[in-house]
Design a protein around this nucleic acid. Sequence first.
RNA 1: GUGGAUGUAGCUUAGUUGGUUAAAGCGCCGGUUUGUGGCACCGGAGACCGUGGGUUCGAGUCCCAUCUUCCACCCCA
Length: 439
Amino acid sequence: MAEINRAVKGTNDILPENSYKYRYVEEKMLEIAGLYGFREIRVPVFEHTEVFSRNVGEDTDVVQKEMYTFDDKGGRSITLRPELTAGVVRSVIERGVLAGALPQKVCYIGGCYRYEKPQAGRLREFHQFGVECFGADSPAADAEIISLARQILITLGVTGVQLKINSIGCSECRKKYVAALKSYFEAHKDVLCDTCKGRLDRNPLRILDCKSPICSKVAEEAPIITDYLCDDCKSHFNLVKQNLTAIGIPYEVDPHIVRGLDYYNKTVFEFVSGDIGAQSTVCGGGRYDGLVAKMGGKDTPALGFGLGIERLMLLLENLNAQMPEDKKCTLFVASMGERAQIEAVKICAALRKDGTEALCDLCGRGLKAQLKYADKIGAKYCVVLGEDELNSGKVSIKDMKTGETHECSIADISDKITDLGIKAALGSLEDSILEVDKI
RNA sequence: GUGGAUGUAGCUUAGUUGGUUAAAGCGCCGGUUUGUGGCACCGGAGACCGUGGGUUCGAGUCCCAUCUUCCACCCCA
């Protein structure tokens, strides 16, 4: 295949045989978020580069080497969003959303772009579902979004994920902690891996996350952030934990959870799974109380999370999670001869007007081939239309599964189909959703 | 960006120590006498063997490069 005709590295096509699963998952997520008062917001795929570089963090990998940045024809530096939080914050400030009743709760689904080396659960174009809550500083808000993330995962059939939480404190206590951490690792500098030696100055927090056996061994004995939290941060974190316990959400405090985006403070959390390869985080988020003010808005506490849709789908697949079936054709109208063909088109038009998926031959095929096709696409019923039927005005509707036939007049096909208890499309989808809910 | 693996029809694969028109299954299309799908049988279309170089009388088979995909590191969702 010529280079130009191939999908760009790290991008993916979702074909009809799978797209309905994505739609189901996305609709479910929006629906559950709605139960918590989150309403969908849609923001641009690209922003001024500074929206990300300044706020995600000039020093982060995302900004340093992963952004798709280009100049537009007006000479503006534009960047395809590598994540959604910064753009959403820009939007709610600019559009005056934060002037409304607080907290403001928004959620979104959208593509994100990062120039990384593709791998299982990691694409250059990937999609995130996420929520952001503005104006709530209570620990109950932290627990609430964690609860939302968990409800989404569980409802969709995810099992075996672990919730890890931590507090990285406010800027004051983090300053003290980073200093302590630095002097600790400084003492063990000789055994650290090369990348961690480099991180010592730039971002000592990252060493805690290193997977090299030696570094993680050293990290085990490192000072723990929770010991450095100021009274306010400490009590906030304790209350988050109490809230989680109160609503029955199991968690593990993992002092090594360090988010890679600069805007986080206080509570951070991740839902991790062992079933999606090395990219174990399906959902990550936390508090970012300083970001709104930093971006020029009124000082407003905020928090949120992002959930990787491709990773979630991978996980659901690996776990063999139940998924509703796709819609199928309700009635196939096979025809023989020109007169019948035109009648078939009329019947389909009438059925579609009534909300029923009805198909007829478009290839000029023989009767046998038409029925074969009806079978392959999983049509529930079919009728054959020939001279006999046109003359008598009666057809027999055949149930493709059982072979049973039901007589009726051509004019009554639509009513008959309805009588048979078949609600095209939506019926089957809703049934299966109910089933999933029961699990 | 750094490592390791992969690449033959739409899909899954076979292809012997390099040797004539590159196989199979599934899928697709059609047929098995005239108006009924699923089964069976028969037939057909479909591959410049990822791409570009090189070695050779001759390469899907060997060498180099490049790209893709996959896996790990890094980082993140």
